[in-house]
Design a protein around this nucleic acid. Structure first.
Lengths: 145, 145
DNA sequence: GCATTACTGTTATGCATGATAGCAGAATTA
DNA sequence: TAATTCTGCTATCATGCATAACAGTAATGC
């Protein structure tokens, strides 16, 4: 693997993320969910009643792109909408949604643990801090030149 | 930011990668390139004459998906193809391609440095090691259950 | 009270990345 | 020579992400 790109943090970040996502989606397919769906379920579990666009803001998903996601989950009977406003609606996990959420949690916890265990022990303590640092750094770097 | 997902390495990895990619693409648009194009130019600079499918294997891009990428770069006059075989062809940077590559290098080096500088100094030394560890761990986790 | 402004959900649309299946021609091997 | 493998390619589909526009609603300023 003579990859001259392996020195670039951005590239390695992308490859790691892409591989991690592939593994996650593979596991979530057993629940007929995509990772986006799973992330929304987890968010709604922690913050029930949140608005569609608030959820989008937290997950960094455009308002317009939330529509098919929420529709899909509602069509599956996993979430309920409840009017808050003339314009906004609170999102809640349905009973079915809560049940599935516990399964999602199991899958994801196991997966994230696997991911962490693959990191050599000496690095593990700082691993999350490094990831958060890159996240923050990258967000700051989007706008600047 | 009450994001319950912020504890999950996989999620943070994805968010960091997505933000990093957005920043990179923004910068590369000045050169009318996408990040995939840039990665291929860099690869060809380091390993001229490499085959299309070899490049795909290194960059983790399917054979079929390499076709439009290579065509695009060839149409732009950035790379040349040279038959090696009845079936395979070696890829090379053209003169134009080499010239653009130096610009790409400037942009990317500056960007990667910015990314790294955004990471707090105490973490910086191990940052790359952590990213590589996650990459490897995630690749290992794709197949296993 | 009313006009302006801002926000929400929505539709439509386009672009980029990835994945899969299948094919023809060439090379390799058994 | 026959069977297998590899390469580049076409076609097609799913997903993610971005932008523009619109109608209905809410909030704000005067």
């Amino acid at each position: 693997m003579n990859d001259p790109l392996a020195n670039l943090p951005g590239y390695v970040l992308r490859r790691a993320s892409s591989a991690a996502l592939a593994g996650l989606n593979r596991r979530l397919s057993a629940l007929s969910l995509r990772h986006v769906d799973a992330s929304l379920l987890m968010l709604l579990n922690g913050q029930p009643g949140i608005t569609q666009s608030e959820a989008g803001r937290i997950l960094d998903i455009q308002r317009a792109n939330m529509v098919p996601i929420v529709s899909r989950l509602e069509a599956k009977g996993l979430i309920d909408r409840q009017r808050v406003d003339g314009r906004s609606q609170g999102l809640y996990l349905s009973a079915e949604g809560e049940a599935l959420h516990t399964q999602v949690l199991t899958v994801i916890d196991a997966y994230e643990q696997t991911l962490m265990e693959g990191v050599p022990a000496p690095l593990r303590k700082q691993a999350m801090a490094v990831l958060h640092a890159f996240w923050q750094s990258a967000e700051a770097a989007i706008e600047s030149d």
